[in-house]
């Protein structure tokens, strides 16, 4: 039986879909069978990030409605055979999801895949609730910025209230990724440190991803940034993926002056 991971955020635009694509690919590169599912009905985007937009024939809603089988709808990643993808419906809206259908789909995916990663819609309406309902683990994505952190806290509150695991008296694992960190700004006291964000949200840190122009370049091409060996964000996603696969990878301090331009700058004072 595979584990189900919901990737969530309170606010949109913090890098949720990018994280989903890269973690899915990272886990697949680690040798595990993984499927990423776009639950953002009506705002399909994961297909673009994965470079699979031209291959979508059937979508998630058609599978849930029995119009297509999982096998027919699933698309294999170009980058790694272990990674499969199920697209969101572009024409319907979030209201079409309901608990029973989501449960059936998630249960059937768990039988085939070791990791089932659900890319949740932003916000906290019903589409979000259905994505987190049957998850074993939630990965919360935030940017080191006030509105993203506040909205993440609300999303975590709803997760705690609606999760099936919590209702059954178990725990849903909550992990945090801080995305788009600028070491220079943190050093200048202009950006919140990951430790501060952890204090405020009171959850476990899964990883830190630095700001990296390569991310946009990667999405332009539909090749997730984890494939770019020169990218610092890509490296961060490799570390995070390994942690998700159970490896004990120490947290890299990307907020200290050892990285990039800042290193040269502080070097002058040594």
């Amino acid at each position: 039986m595979g584990i189900v991971i919901a990737v969530i955020s309170g606010k949109g635009g913090v890098g949720k879909t990018t994280a989903t694509a890269n973690l899915g690919l990272g886990i697949a590169m680690y040798g595990k069978k993984c499927i990423v599912v776009d639950f953002d009905i009506g705002q399909r985007n994961l297909d673009m990030i994965l470079g699979l937009e031209n291959r979508v024939v059937y979508d998630l809603v058609q599978v849930m409605d029995g119009e297509a089988s999982v096998r027919q709808a699933v698309i294999k990643s170009k980058a790694n055979d272990n990674l499969h993808f199920l697209a969101a419906s572009q024409t319907k809206d979030k209201g079409v999801l309901n608990s029973e259908k989501v449960k059936v789909l998630v249960e059937s995916l768990k039988e085939t895949y070791e990791y089932v990663i659900l890319d949740s819609p932003a916000g906290i309406e019903s589409g979000f609730e259905h994505t987190i309902e049957f998850a074993d683990t939630a990965i919360v994505i935030v940017n080191p910025e006030v509105s993203s952190i506040r909205d993440a806290d609300r999303a975590i509150g709803i997760l705690d209230a609606k999760s099936q695991r919590v209702k059954e008296g178990e725990e849903v694992r909550k992990l945090l990724i801080v995305n788009r960190i600028s070491a220079e700004m943190v050093q200048n006291g202009e950006m919140l440190k990951s430790e501060d964000i952890l204090d405020i949200l009171n959850i476990t840190l899964l990883g830190k991803v630095p700001e990296d122009k390569g991310v946009i370049d990667a999405s332009n091409q539909g090749k997730p940034v984890i494939l770019n060996e020169k990218s610092i964000a890509g490296e961060a996603y490799i570390r995070i993926s390994k942690r998700l696969c159970g490896e004990d990878i120490p947290m890299k301090d990307i907020e200290s002056p050892q990285t990039g331009v800042f290193r040269k700058f502080t070097g002058m004072f040594r």
């Binding site: 006030v146 050093q187 200048n188 006291g189 405020i200």
Partner: peptide, 24 residues
């Protein structure tokens, strides 16, 4: 540089967030 950061915007952000989230 810790002593310089006391009144920098990151620590303001932390204080504001702590209060806002408590009330949420």
């Amino acid at each position: 540089f810790g002593w310089m950061n006391e009144n920098k915007s990151a620590s303001i952000a932390k204080d504001r967030l702590t209060i806002a989230i408590m009330s949420d």
